[in-house]
Design a protein around this nucleic acid. Structure first.
Lengths: 79, 79
DNA sequence: TTATTTGCGGCCTTATAAGACCCCAAAATG
DNA sequence: CATTTTGGGGTCTTATAAGGCCGCAAATAA
């Protein structure tokens, strides 16, 4: 079950992901091509609408040409 | 769908998780109490049997008293 | 202004994670 | 030896991620 606390966490993760993508100068569709994840799904992830799995996380890292761990390096949301 | 390549990735992740738990001197049940994840589930994660979600990853980090990112800092499995 | 790109949200199906519990066999402990 | 403790596999239900496609409105480019 997805709690309100989880919602915040996912939102915060999404914000960071979006920042990383922007920093790389990628559009949703460009990123989609780079990691084979549907662009609308990436949009949902950035909006904190889904709780992605580990393999999806790693795929995103591929598109960003970043270490998977860096996708988790940000100031956590305060509950 | 969970590919054979994903299987390897999850296994590698699980090995690392197990190492982190052992280093902390926790049993499956102790870790279970520390993050409210069923011990048999943690066992499955360590065995690479499941593709956990982001929130589960963060919960595991809580039990290990580690930064979430550290759970992803290990030499990746070669495909 | 017209054409293109971009960011989404919705919808569907299928695969599977989550959550909870049971129980056993082996290992560690008393 | 008897008794925990520990690792871990199996099973069931329910929630939801994955995967894929559609279309639109706003921003951007031509």
């Amino acid at each position: 079950m997805i709690t309100p606390a989880d919602k915040k966490i996912l939102k915060r993760f999404g914000e960071n992901l979006r920042k990383l993508r922007k920093d790389k100068g990628l559009s949703l569709r460009e990123m989609s091509y780079a990691c084979s994840i549907d662009n609308s799904k990436i949009a949902k992830i950035e909006k904190g609408m889904i709780n992605i799995t580990l393999t999806t996380l790693l795929q995103l890292a591929v598109a960003l040409e970043a270490q998977p761990a860096t996708l988790l390096e940000y100031e956590p949301a305060e509950l």
